Amino acid sequence: MTKREFLIRAGLLLLVLGIITTLVVLDRTRGNDRPQAEPTPTSTPSPSPSGTVVPLPTDKPGKGETDVIPTPPPGIEAIACQKLQQSVEVTVLDFNTHRSYGGIATVAAEIAAVDPDIVLLQEIDRFKGGTGNIDQAAYFAEALGMDHVFGANVTSGNGEYGVAILSRFKILGSENYLLPNGPGGEQRGLLGVGVEIGGQEVRIYNTHLQNKLPGLREAQARHVAGILANEENPIILGGDMNATISTPTLAPLTAQLVDAWSVGSGPEGTGPNGSRIDFLLASPTIVPQRAQVLGSAISDHSRLLADFVVPASTDCPTQPRDAKPRKKKSRSGG
């Protein structure tokens, strides 16, 4: 039995035991509410002819007065599974922070303002002198109350530079893949994590492709597409692609995934030159509901925000979710 199967069965067992406990409590409560029988007149034992006192027969317990654990109703596992299998609306933010040069607290506030469930951040420093020797990913995670993973792509002395993923859902594991590089290029990577949403594992990926060398950028995108092609779980991919939707860079990615901007509204420019170069893409089973671009007072990139519906798992039994669907707040775009 795999660890996942063990957790699935353990979750269902706990749910069934909870239902049984509730039934026991209700059964006892009903027993306490039953009408009490009229008192029976006491009888005095009568002596036998030999003078020996013969005890009178004692009363037997009435029906229903013993503590019996009720049997769970048939099909309880199927009922429990259906309760656990619910689609979940997830808000995802993609944001190139420009290393938070203008103030990391302001960047944290800009993230918090849109109340995301998952955050994909590019241009993140860790212990770099130029940005205050701060572990920026850890700072954001603490400020927002989220789990986080950092993917280092460039190391200089004690400092690192790369991307990060923050999540309100528990992060199950992570991998950081270094992408192809060449002369004149900067090392880039693909950070991936697994999170459990709606009773299934969803794979979340974040990347930042090469900005100056189109051929290298296209090779990196093909490499990313090759990694994603081997995934069996639903995928959400975000990142600064440094290319627009009509370029060869995006073609291998959009061949597998759906662009969230298909339901976008308002101005779409995200990059310094006003082009849409930051993307949120997802497996066809993960349906985008809304997408919008929000400016930033700090970064030279705008924030890209999208709501997705992650469908319920089709497998029973299933694990409990780490987080329930939340009622979405109205957004001011702050």
Rank of each mutant, 00 (worst) to 15 (best):
S265H: 15
F308S: 09
L281M: 14
T249L: 02
Q210D: 13
L281N: 14
G199S: 04
G264A: 09
F279E: 02
G238A: 09
H208I: 06
T244I: 00
Y205F: 15
K212I: 10
L209Q: 01
D259I: 13
G198N: 11
D240V: 03
R203P: 11
G198A: 15
E218I: 12
I298D: 12
R203D: 04
P267D: 07
I236N: 15
A251Q: 11
I245S: 15
H223E: 12
A221E: 05
N230Q: 09
S246D: 12
V195Q: 11
P272Q: 05
R203K: 04
R222I: 08
G266T: 05
F279A: 10
R203I: 07
D278Y: 03
P234W: 02
L294K: 05
L304D: 00
I204Q: 06
D259S: 13
Q210L: 01
L216C: 03
L228A: 15
G266Y: 01
D300S: 07
T254L: 15
P272W: 02
T285S: 15
Q210S: 07
G194H: 12
T244K: 03
L281Y: 14
T244C: 03
P267S: 11
G266I: 01
S299I: 10
A243Y: 05
V193L: 04
K212N: 03
I245L: 15
V258K: 00
G198D: 10
N242K: 08
R222D: 05
H223C: 05
S302D: 09
L253G: 13
P248Q: 13
L228Y: 14
I204Y: 08
T249K: 00
